[in-house]
Nucleic acid binder design. Sequence first.
DNA 1: GCAATCTAGACATTTTATATCCAGATTGCT
DNA 2: AGCAATCTGGATATAAAATGTCTAGATTGC
Lengths: 166, 166
Amino acid sequence: MQLPKGVEWAAHCLVVLERLGESHPVPTSTLAEVYGLSPTYLNKHLQALSRHGLLISTPGSTGGFSLSRPAAEITLADVVEALDGDRTLFRCTEIRCDGLFQDRSAEIRASGACRIAAAMWQAEQAWRESLATVSINDLAGGIDALSGQNLNEFVGNKNRKAGQDI
Amino acid sequence: MQLPKGVEWAAHCLVVLERLGESHPVPTSTLAEVYGLSPTYLNKHLQALSRHGLLISTPGSTGGFSLSRPAAEITLADVVEALDGDRTLFRCTEIRCDGLFQDRSAEIRASGACRIAAAMWQAEQAWRESLATVSINDLAGGIDALSGQNLNEFVGNKNRKAGQDI
DNA sequence: GCAATCTAGACATTTTATATCCAGATTGCT
DNA sequence: AGCAATCTGGATATAAAATGTCTAGATTGC
């Protein structure tokens, strides 16, 4: 069981957008180039972030994606939720009601949620709460500190190429 | 991203073994019948639990599986680790080193682990720690309290059928 | 020796993740 | 107005993982 790679891609892209400041929207193609990712597939993930309100998408010739709110208010929990939907790590299939005790399934269900599921969900809660303490802002310092300058130059050139004055 | 169903199966089976006391080993076929599971596939998971020291397996005609230690000392974290191996929820592919900054990858790696990965792993740590607080013993009370009596009768009959005096 | 079991691995099926592609709509530029 | 670049959504294809089955070998109790 593993988180989809899209989570990693999305997190890095959000960091890039933070580092670039709020200037102009950055198109998928540029973000893909920064990290050597598949543009079309990355776009699918960015669309998901947009649908969930983490990004604002601007259509049109000089369009692209930009952060919808301050990077300090976007957390890893948001990213995971946006890309992985409302799925839980643990999925309870209530096998308590399936085999030997089939005919008492109503009674079993009435006795409350399965304790295994409850414990699993509580642990998952701890996971999400930890993710919620880390914002894109917290992440931005380290990751691309080394390459932040280059990043600005690169994207800047890209945008100028597209006919835009940054 | 979701935990394999085997985790649920294994957890329930451990609870059943706890409720039956330590009497005799219970074969895969009986455990599968209790919850209406695929015997061969369940056996694969039980083998994994055995390899990781949660269960003791007894070969032979009256063989089967039994808990390797008190149910209070087997936690959900153990179950997840046994069935899902050493995989982490989040897998870092270091895309920092892949695209624009390819030629500086050595430098980037030297600057330390990716902060995104670090945050993800810390959250995962919280998840595992929460799972480690829940033992099979804790779970046994609720889940099959309703059907514990039937469980004993059922497995008892099974074992007698197999020629065993329980 | 026979029947029941665990073990290990090969194999098939199903589901999910990954990736690509295309038609439609929006916008900026000339 | 027309063109180029973009986002949007869905269809489709490929790769990987989970799920499930099967067989041959080894162990034990009767």
